[in-house]
Amino acid sequence: MHELAIAENIVDTVCTRAAGRPVRRVTVRIGALTAVLPDAMLLCWDLAATGTAAHGAALDLDLRPAVVFCRACRTDQRLPDMIPLCPCGSADVTVTAGRELHIVSMEVA
């Protein structure tokens, strides 16, 4: 359950940046290739935030799909799974999205 460690990282960061003000809402962007499970994140969030300046804050997840650029057909393609393969059959692709794991913003009182 690495989501707990991730949630603790997020709580640490937002509490530091909030500098003592209560945090009401946090938005986190999660790419499909990051091995972070949204449900597990939400479960861990309250646990990690308890007793901190982010206690009771809402967690919004901005889930992003995995996208590759295919050099064979020169198009961007959304991946249905983790296999970096273009529907045209080419494996000559570069992952352009899906590895995001960012704290986008927070709302402080």
Binding site: I6, R17, A18, I103, V108
Partner: peptide, 9 residues
């Protein structure tokens, strides 16, 4: 609302 755009890890 404060924009952070920080990597979680």
């Amino acid at each position: 609302t404060v924009t952070l755009e920080e990597r979680v890890l």
